[in-house]
C-alpha cells in the first residue's frame, strides 16, 4: 500500500472505491487458489481414522494381574476417580510376581475407574510402579447412562476388550 491517501473528498471517494475493489480481489484470489492443488486436510471420521500418537492419553486401562494395590494412583489423582480396595492374602497363600518382578502381597478386590470423572491428566500412570495402569488408545466409549462410565477392571469380560484397546 504505497499510495498516499488523498484528502480531497471527491478523490477520496474514488480512492476508497478502488481500494475496496483491489483488496477484495486480492482476498478472493487467495481463496480462489484453494480450488485446485491444495490437498484436503479434513478426515471423514467414521470411515477414515487418524492414527493417534504413541503418547495419546485416552481411556485408562489397568492390567489387574500386574497391580500390587499400592494405591499410589488413587492418591495422585486430582479428581479422585480411582476406586481401589484390597485385602491381605490368607496365610500360606502363594505370593505371585508381577511382570517386572515385584511381589503381589495384597489381594486386589476392587479396581474401578469412573471415566466420567477422569480428566485424562496422566498423573496416575506416571506414579504406577509396575506400569500396569496405562492410557489406552480407545476414545469411543460413549454410554447411555453415567453409571456405565464406571469401568471395573476386575470384571470377567475385561479380557474381551483388553486386546482391542491396549497398546501393543
Amino acid at each position: 500500500m504505497s499510495y498516499t491517501v488523498p484528502h480531497n473528498s471527491f478523490k477520496k471517494y474514488f480512492y476508497d472505491l478502488f481500494n475496496a475493489v483491489k483488496t477484495t480481489v486480492v482476498g478472493m484470489w487467495i481463496t480462489f487458489r484453494y480450488v485446485w492443488g491444495v490437498k484436503s486436510v479434513s478426515i471423514e471420521y467414521p470411515e477414515v481414522r487418524e492414527v493417534l500418537p504413541e503418547r495419546a492419553r485416552m481411556r485408562l486401562f489397568n492390567d489387574a494381574q500386574n497391580c500390587i494395590s499400592c494405591t499410589q494412583c488413587a492418591m495422585a489423582c486430582p479428581v479422585d476417580c480411582i476406586y481401589i480396595s484390597s485385602e491381605k492374602l490368607p496365610e500360606g497363600a502363594e505370593i505371585k510376581k508381577t511382570s517386572n518382578g515385584q511381589s503381589i502381597r495384597l489381594h486386589l478386590t476392587q479396581f474401578t475407574i469412573d471415566t466420567a470423572l477422569c480428566c485424562y491428566c496422566g498423573l496416575c500412570t506416571t506414579v504406577c510402579p509396575t506400569e500396569c495402569l496405562t492410557h489406552s488408545h480407545d476414545y469411543e466409549f460413549a454410554q447411555y447412562t453415567i453409571d456405565a462410565m464406571k469401568y471395573d477392571y476386575l470384571a470377567p469380560d475385561v479380557k474381551a476388550w483388553r486386546d482391542r484397546i491396549v497398546k501393543a
Binding site: P53, R55, A56, Y120, G122
Partner: peptide, 14 residues
C-alpha cells in the same frame, strides 16, 4: 498435533 505427540493431549497438556 506436535503437542499431542509430546504430551499426549491436544488441549490440556499437563
Amino acid at each position: 498435533r506436535l503437542f499431542e505427540e509430546i504430551s499426549g493431549a491436544r488441549l490440556l497438556y499437563n
